[in-house]
Design a protein around this nucleic acid. Structure first.
Lengths: 118, 118
DNA sequence: CTTTGATATAAGTAATTGATTATATAAGTA
DNA sequence: TACTTATATAATCAATTACTTATATCAAAG
């Protein structure tokens, strides 16, 4: 398995994307499980459009995948991204965000959003 | 050897620092050898104060070490930085900057600056 | 001690970024 | 169909960023 050579420009673009607290936290959360937009809205003290714009940046860079299920849109890490190994090694250094997941469970947000749509 | 846990804030601050083309290229160059300021000035199409300001940011974050030798100031990677492993894994993904080193040698800049000061 | 070369700092500025509010779209439900 | 909930887009704005030019500092050489 050859190592893909990544240009300085591609790398700085990715790092810039990850150098925002909200976006990096989002990705750390996605590392363990997909999330829907409303969960991010619950977690971050920020307006829904702000969340949506952060997700758009991640989406435009193909760092995340988007799946609509009914009225909800779920996001997940794109493990096919050419820089996925780098993303993984960055995320592995970052402190766990389990407290946020716990908050979702306790507040009932996770249940509301993520129930099986069948 | 325990893995140091790094906060989201510390990580985003580091990524922001590395998410600039000039600074990331500087660090990639420092990965193989120390450089003096005049070498960076030769390499980047940019004013000397601009170079100096980039170096100040890297210095303030302790990502690089500074050593004065006579009238020259040399910079090197700080391998004692708490996030040095992350810095290394980022740099390892980035394309080589050997062409820039070659340019320094050919232009004579490297010789002028980096001769043993004894 | 004055000049020169190397580097740092200060002040100003245009471009970018990350938020906001208002509005649009899209899906589910009465 | 109309209403509600979830999400996206548009327009706007304040803060930050990465340059620029001008000036200061600092070390070596005359």
């Amino acid at each position: 398995m050859e190592k893909t050579i990544i240009s300085i420009e591609e790398t700085t673009a990715l790092l810039k994307l990850l150098s925002d607290k909200t976006r990096l936290t989002m990705l750390k959360l996605l590392e363990s499980d997909e999330c829907c937009v409303c969960e991010f809205v619950e977690l971050f003290q920020m307006s829904q459009p702000a969340i949506s714009q952060h997700l758009k940046k991640l989406r435009s860079a193909s760092v995340v995948n988007e799946t609509r299920r009914g009225q909800w849109v779920f996001y997940s890490l794109n493990d096919q991204h050419p820089m996925y190994p780098l993303i993984q090694s960055i995320l592995s250094e970052v402190e766990s965000q389990d407290d946020k997941v716990q908050h979702l469970i306790e507040s009932g947000t996770r249940v509301t959003c993520c129930v099986d749509p069948k």
